[in-house]
Deep mutational scan, measured.
Amino acid sequence: MTEYKLVVVGAGGVGKSALTIQLIQNHFVDEYDPTIEDSYRKQVVIDGETCLLDILDTAGQEEYSAMRDQYMRTGEGFLCVFAINNTKSFEDIHHYREQIKRVKDSEDVPMVLVGNKCDLPSRTVDTKQAQDLARSYGIPFIETSAKTRQGVDDAFYTLVREIRKHKEKMSKDGKKKKKKSKTKCVIM
Results as ranks from 00 to 15, higher is better:
residue 125 V to D: 13
residue 125 V to K: 13
residue 125 V to W: 12
residue 125 V to P: 01
residue 126 D to Y: 14
residue 126 D to L: 08
residue 126 D to T: 06
residue 126 D to C: 10
residue 126 D to W: 08
residue 126 D to A: 05
residue 127 T to V: 12
residue 127 T to W: 08
residue 127 T to N: 13
residue 127 T to D: 13
residue 128 K to T: 08
residue 128 K to V: 06
residue 128 K to H: 06
residue 129 Q to G: 13
residue 129 Q to V: 10
residue 129 Q to Y: 03
residue 129 Q to W: 14
residue 129 Q to A: 12
residue 130 A to C: 12
residue 130 A to L: 13
residue 130 A to V: 14
residue 130 A to Q: 04
residue 130 A to R: 04
residue 130 A to M: 12
residue 131 Q to W: 04
residue 131 Q to L: 07
residue 131 Q to E: 14
residue 131 Q to P: 05
residue 131 Q to I: 05
residue 131 Q to H: 03
residue 132 D to P: 01
residue 132 D to N: 07
residue 132 D to W: 02
residue 132 D to L: 03
residue 132 D to Y: 02
residue 133 L to C: 05
residue 133 L to H: 05
residue 133 L to W: 12
residue 133 L to N: 04
residue 133 L to F: 13
residue 133 L to M: 09
residue 133 L to S: 04
residue 134 A to Q: 01
residue 134 A to W: 07
residue 134 A to Y: 08
residue 135 R to I: 07
residue 135 R to K: 13
residue 135 R to G: 05
residue 135 R to W: 04
residue 135 R to D: 14
residue 135 R to C: 10
residue 135 R to P: 02
residue 136 S to M: 09
residue 136 S to T: 09
residue 136 S to P: 01
residue 136 S to F: 06
residue 137 Y to K: 05
residue 137 Y to A: 11
residue 137 Y to N: 08
residue 137 Y to P: 01
residue 137 Y to Q: 06
residue 137 Y to M: 14
residue 137 Y to L: 13
residue 137 Y to D: 05
residue 137 Y to F: 11
residue 137 Y to S: 09
residue 138 G to V: 01
residue 138 G to H: 04
residue 138 G to R: 02
residue 138 G to D: 07
residue 138 G to T: 01
residue 138 G to Q: 02
residue 138 G to E: 05
residue 139 I to K: 01
residue 139 I to R: 01
residue 141 F to V: 09
residue 141 F to H: 01
residue 142 I to A: 06
residue 142 I to V: 09
residue 142 I to D: 01
residue 143 E to A: 05
residue 143 E to I: 03
residue 143 E to G: 04
residue 143 E to R: 02
residue 144 T to H: 01
residue 144 T to A: 01
residue 144 T to P: 02
residue 145 S to P: 00
residue 145 S to L: 02
residue 145 S to I: 07
residue 148 T to M: 08
residue 149 R to W: 14
residue 149 R to Y: 12
residue 149 R to C: 15
residue 150 Q to G: 13
residue 151 G to I: 06
residue 151 G to N: 12
residue 151 G to Q: 06
residue 151 G to S: 11
residue 151 G to E: 10
residue 152 V to T: 09
residue 152 V to Q: 09
residue 153 D to P: 08
residue 153 D to C: 10
residue 153 D to R: 09
residue 153 D to H: 10
residue 154 D to N: 10
residue 154 D to R: 08
residue 154 D to A: 10
residue 155 A to F: 01
residue 155 A to N: 00
residue 155 A to K: 00
residue 155 A to S: 04
residue 155 A to I: 11
residue 155 A to V: 10
residue 156 F to E: 00
residue 156 F to W: 05
residue 156 F to N: 00
residue 156 F to S: 00
residue 156 F to K: 00
residue 156 F to G: 00
residue 156 F to D: 00
residue 157 Y to H: 13
residue 157 Y to W: 07
residue 157 Y to P: 04
residue 158 T to Q: 12
residue 158 T to M: 08
residue 159 L to Y: 00
residue 159 L to C: 03
residue 160 V to R: 02
residue 160 V to D: 01
residue 161 R to T: 15
residue 162 E to H: 03
residue 162 E to L: 04
residue 162 E to G: 03
residue 162 E to A: 04
residue 162 E to W: 01
residue 164 R to Q: 15
residue 164 R to D: 15
residue 164 R to M: 13
residue 165 K to Q: 06
residue 165 K to L: 05
residue 165 K to M: 03
residue 166 H to I: 08
residue 166 H to G: 06
residue 166 H to C: 08
residue 167 K to I: 02
residue 167 K to H: 10
residue 167 K to Q: 08
residue 167 K to E: 09
residue 167 K to Y: 02
residue 167 K to P: 02
residue 167 K to G: 03
residue 168 E to R: 04
residue 168 E to S: 11
residue 168 E to P: 09
residue 169 K to V: 07
residue 169 K to G: 09
residue 169 K to E: 09
residue 169 K to A: 09
residue 169 K to T: 13
residue 170 M to Y: 03
residue 170 M to V: 08
residue 170 M to T: 07
residue 170 M to E: 10
residue 172 K to T: 15
residue 172 K to A: 13
residue 172 K to C: 05
residue 172 K to Y: 04
residue 172 K to M: 13
residue 172 K to G: 14
residue 174 G to V: 07
residue 174 G to P: 11
residue 175 K to R: 10
residue 175 K to F: 04
residue 175 K to Y: 06
residue 176 K to W: 08
residue 176 K to Y: 12
residue 176 K to R: 05
residue 176 K to D: 13
residue 176 K to P: 14
residue 177 K to E: 14
residue 177 K to Y: 10
residue 177 K to W: 04
residue 178 K to Q: 15
residue 178 K to A: 13
residue 178 K to L: 08
residue 178 K to P: 10
residue 178 K to F: 07
residue 178 K to M: 07
residue 180 K to L: 10
residue 181 S to Q: 14
residue 181 S to A: 09
residue 181 S to D: 15
residue 182 K to V: 08
residue 182 K to G: 12
residue 182 K to L: 04
residue 183 T to R: 11
residue 183 T to P: 15
residue 183 T to A: 15
residue 184 K to V: 00
residue 184 K to W: 00
residue 186 V to N: 12
residue 186 V to D: 15
residue 186 V to C: 03
residue 187 I to M: 15
residue 188 M to L: 08
residue 188 M to S: 14
residue 188 M to T: 12
residue 188 M to C: 11
residue 188 M to Y: 04
residue 188 M to G: 15
